[in-house]
Nucleic acid binder design. Structure first.
Length: 413
RNA sequence: CGGGGUGUGGCGCAGUUGAUAGCGCGCCCGGUUUGGGACCGGGAGGUCGAAGGUUUGAGUCCUUUCACCCCGACCA
């Protein structure tokens, strides 16, 4: 991709109506466009980040047997009435609309009931279990107040997975495997070291639910962590959890954190409410055991920005960066020729390059390279060509080294 | 939803005690520049969130309303 072809532009002006670091930088660098409070469009650079995050999540979900689907954003009223969650008093984030004939519809804020309703069409026998399905879907929530840029919007992308089992034991086994898969996801996203599986409230079937919390100043939650023991507890269940785990409050460090994932063991609660059963080997009807597993994709992107960005702009981990290399061209015909060639070579080797082919001054290009945050910057200039070298600069450290072209290609490959 | 703040060219802002708008960035044209967001000259672009009102006169005052940001509440 060439910068001259990108329809988005960087801006020297910081958006006046955003305070969240993630939103300010993402807008400034041309990754997102703000549509309204809590609603953002993802432009080419931002979409690439989102797709990279999804790719990682998809690989890990597939690895534990998840089957990808996509549900609808429009939902039937009846779907949610079975569990009493159509009521605005029960769920206060509903967006609702109507068909022309006045039939009421809901805009999906979650797909728990919708997916279970679908699954009961297919899962009839113990032979059909266990099974798990997941999707990447846009959730619409009528939040009273949107905040923190893309970290808490009214529209956001979430990966939600549901596993169905014939027994509590089978669910537990799968659930543990899912926790491991989640840890792999956060490791690959570059936030693994600061992400903890935490004890939190909200378990319908078990005492605690599990949240995946990333230590982050921009987060909304408060966590008590024990780094050596790798234990973390959400403030909301601190007293109970401390008792249960046999640890002292004083051993724990208080930090701010952002919830990047949440998994629930529903047991048979939901299937009993919805009347979803399977026929066991003994011929009797039994409720299905259910668990759900969520990862906020757009929120994860926001957390990555918040954690790694510096005073010069965005800093992307290689695994999610929209491009691996930001190629800066400085100079005349010879520099153009060599930069064109390098762009072609790197691209042919499968390395994603954003090539700054604009007729801009060096300072502008360097500043944009830093603002956009690709992990590697490569400079081709007349001056370097005379020395037979290229310059490679790491975004994280800012360290620059001069290399020959083959050394550079080897390093990036 | 309670409290606080802000709405002025595409973006960021300034507009003193009311007299029909100005700066920076960006954009267009010409020229000089080219390793850290260049410079010179020329130009386009806004009726000041919206509606109503006070006044000879409103971006400046009043009322209503909408939007956006922050704190809180909420987040199954």
């Amino acid at each position: 991709m060439k910068v001259s072809q990108l329809f988005t532009k960087t801006s020297k002006n910081v958006p006046g109506d955003e305070t969240a670091k993630n939103a300010r930088l993402l807008i400034q660098a041309g990754y997102v466009y703000k549509v309204m409070a809590g609603v953002y469009a993802y432009t080419p650079l931002g979409l690439r980040v989102l797709e990279n995050i999804k790719r990682i999540v998809r690989e890990e979900m597939n690895a534990i047997g998840g089957q990808e689907i996509i549900m609808s954003s429009l939902q039937r009223r009846e779907t949610w009435e079975t569990t009493g969650r159509w009521d605005d008093e029960v769920v206060d984030v509903w967006f609702k609309t109507k068909l022309k004939d006045d039939t009421e519809l809901g805009l999906a804020w979650s797909h728990e009931e919708a997916i279970m309703e679908m699954m009961q069409q297919f899962v009839k026998s113990y032979k059909d279990l266990p099974t798990s399905v997941y999707q990447f879907q846009t959730k619409l929530r009528n939040e009273l107040r949107a905040k923190s840029g893309i970290m808490r919007g009214r529209e956001f992308v979430m990966k939600d997975m549901y596993s169905l089992h014939a027994s509590a034991e089978d669910l537990d086994t799968y659930y543990s495997g899912a926790i491991e898969a989640y840890n792999r996801v956060y490791d690959r996203l570059g936030i693994g070291d600061d992400t903890y599986v935490t004890f939190a409230s909200g378990g319908a079937f078990t005492k605690f639910s599990h949240e995946f919390q990333t230590i982050c100043d921009a987060g909304e939650d408060v966590l008590y962590v024990h780094r050596e023991k790798n234990i973390a507890v959400n403030e909301e269940v601190l007293d109970d959890a401390v008792k249960e785990l046999g640890i002292e409050k004083s051993e724990l460090e208080k930090v701010k954190s952002a919830e990047v994932g949440n998994i629930f063991n529903f047991g048979t609660d939901k299937s009993e409410t919805m009347g979803i059963r399977f026929t066991d080997s003994d011929g009797t009807q039994k409720p299905i055991y259910l668990a759900s597993y969520g990862i906020g994709i757009t929120r994860a992107m926001g957390v990555i920005v918040e954690k790694f960005a510096d005073d010069k702009g965005l800093v992307w981990p290689e695994s999610v960066a929209p491009f691996t290399v930001y190629l800066v061209r400085i100079g005349g015909d010879e520099a153009t020729k060599q930069a064109d060639e390098l762009y072609a070579e790197l691209t042919s080797k499968g390395i994603e390059v954003l090539y700054d082919d604009r007729d801009e001054r060096p300072g502008t290009k360097f500043a944009d390279a830093e603002l956009m945050g690709m992990p590697h910057r490569v400079t081709v200039s007349d001056r370097l060509i005379e020395a037979g070298k290229l310059e490679h600069t790491e975004r994280t450290s800012g360290e620059a080294v001069q290399l020959t072209r083959s050394e550079l290609v080897a390093r990036l490959g």
